[in-house]
Design a protein around this nucleic acid. Sequence first.
DNA 1: TTGACAGCAGAACGAACGTTCTTTATAGTT
DNA 2: AACTATAAAGAACGTTCGTTCTGCTGTCAA
Lengths: 195, 195
Amino acid sequence: MTDHKDTEYLYKLQDYYADWKSIPSYARLCEVFGIASKSWVKAILTRLADAEFIERTPDGAWIPTRQFFARPLAESSVQAGMPVSVTATQGDFFVIDEMLIDTPSKTTLITVKGESMIDAGIHDGDVAVVEKRMTANIGDIVVAIVDDDFTLKTLDRENGAFILRPANPAFPVIRPQGTLEIYGVLIGLIRKYKR
Amino acid sequence: MTDHKDTEYLYKLQDYYADWKSIPSYARLCEVFGIASKSWVKAILTRLADAEFIERTPDGAWIPTRQFFARPLAESSVQAGMPVSVTATQGDFFVIDEMLIDTPSKTTLITVKGESMIDAGIHDGDVAVVEKRMTANIGDIVVAIVDDDFTLKTLDRENGAFILRPANPAFPVIRPQGTLEIYGVLIGLIRKYKR
DNA sequence: TTGACAGCAGAACGAACGTTCTTTATAGTT
DNA sequence: AACTATAAAGAACGTTCGTTCTGCTGTCAA
């Protein structure tokens, strides 16, 4: 999108979306853009779609892409050299949820207690993003129900039996006697540093 | 919303929204909900609106509310050493973005590269939630600009001078010669496990 | 056994919608 | 002065949408 006019329209669309979380009809977009022609609205949206700021559902509805939520890079002119140890990505309000959660109805958050997975970078107080399902693969970090207890461990196999391996040498490997019921699989992790 | 049937419909709607970022027409919602009657779709949406999961724009379009994005947070934490019995996890709800981000305009997301903070449970590929500001306290994990490079380290003090301490013995402590410019302070961390 | 209601299906309809085509105005270029 | 591109307006049209109303079926209490 080389055009400055379209950038202006994009801003207006973004502002509208921030307010209403939807892209309205062409008629309403005429007001939003400050023009009077539906066909011109369509031309604008088509160009924004070419620039991958919006796209269409199979039903024809316009929806924002990830690009749509991107914000201009650090306003500070900081430096020209490419950072080595760290690369910057842009994100806005929406992105975190979207990044971590594919199927909202199957996802639950569980606060982690204890240090048993510390070598996997999972600390006490971290929040685990768990997708509820009954099956998992070897190597997955799972929330399992062993003898009516929740526990977060790596799923492994030993002599044909499933075992739960902690990521901390100070904790024992769990070899379930009865049933090993899997509550869900760890798909994400959230940590908040206190102020 | 006391009805458990409506809860099921809500889940389906949330899953659809996660995919398409929009609430579709009644006709399409018939398929999504698995029913055949547009009038019944409307009845369902009306009830969801009463329960404040969705609302309408002045144009009549359905849009999600904040409640819509809330995730269940399990009451019992996952235990490592001493497990707690499983209880039904219908506790608090919360929104991930809200938890991590106080001031969107000052918050940026940065993907972490390298292993220099691994002992602090920060791994390569994790996403750091950084609040941009120029000042930090001793002990904070900061994103600093050293010699035109971004770097993520713990801020410390040595002989009256600020130093940047990695959380990995294989990496050297950084003792900035010139200015130590602080880009921001780490306030959160996000990790996504690949499928 | 009746009747009341919840849960849905289906039709009917006017308004709104997206699309396409044609036309106009302005600005810049040759 | 003639040409061209851009930006927009406007009309025309077939489709789709949301709404309302009416009808059907099962359940459960009276």
